[in-house]
Amino acid sequence: MDKFKIFLFPFVSAVFGVLILMLAVFVLNSVSIFQREGLAIYTTNVWIASENPEEEYYGILAATYGTLYTSLIALIIVLPIAIGFSVFIVDFVPEKFKEAFIIPTDIMAGMPTILFGIWGVFYLVPAISGFADFMYKNFSFIPLFSYYNPTGFSYLAAGMLLSIMVLPFASSLIREAYRAVPEVYREAALSLGLTRFEVARILLGYIKPSILASTLLAFGRAVGETVAVSLVIGNAFNINPSLFAPGYTISSLLANQFGNAFVYEYMPSALFSAGLALFAIGLVVNVAGLIVLRRWTHV
């Protein structure tokens, strides 16, 4: 090893150090709740905080449910829009004007997330509140609309806000893949007398792995988003199928509860174990996304 490499080595080790230490911190701090409750911390929905450690009991199922539910809402909204938007930019916008559509989404992708949060509280939530009221009064027999909550702070608010936040990210991945489809395939499709729709269907089939990868990575982002979600989701221990019910996500639970956690004996550990779950979900989803992406680009 040359001197330069030896000099640089500690810095690159720090990169690994951060990840390993993080994992260690979350595992070690989760031990005491695991010893007390076992897996029940993940499989039950209870939150009994008490000055008396004997009575304390925690289960974060509601937060896990909320995380998956809101991310799913976000993806269902995002995926078709991201695909349609990519096709729009690549197929319908002349070269000179493409940038004009891409820059706003780039701004959006990097914008401080708290700005989505403040917008969500003052614009999105009130809008959903009226909608929620209407849907409940007319369609409450459908489980999706079965919860009466005219405040608007809900899974739906969180899911919609997340969809707006991850859209630029998902659409840039899909757009770049769609744009990179070799011209020869587009020419082939066109030469067969196909319409724009039929051509796009072939080309989107060609980039299916990229679409899958961006879905996974967008899901990973949605799962980890904290402040904007915690401002609009209503923060309640709830497991409800209705879009209008308030709930928790793991990250909003952490943001909300850690402030007073140290008063209690087991709550910090319960929250670290929630963080561990988020760690695991994030790692699995992101690594899966990266694997799909990499395998694809190596074809």
Partner: peptide, 25 residues
Amino acid sequence: DDLFVLFAFASALLAILPIFHILFS
């Protein structure tokens, strides 16, 4: 084919509109 074009334009609108609404607000 026409519906597909409509879908692409509508997606663009839905993608861009929130951005401007947020910046504007």
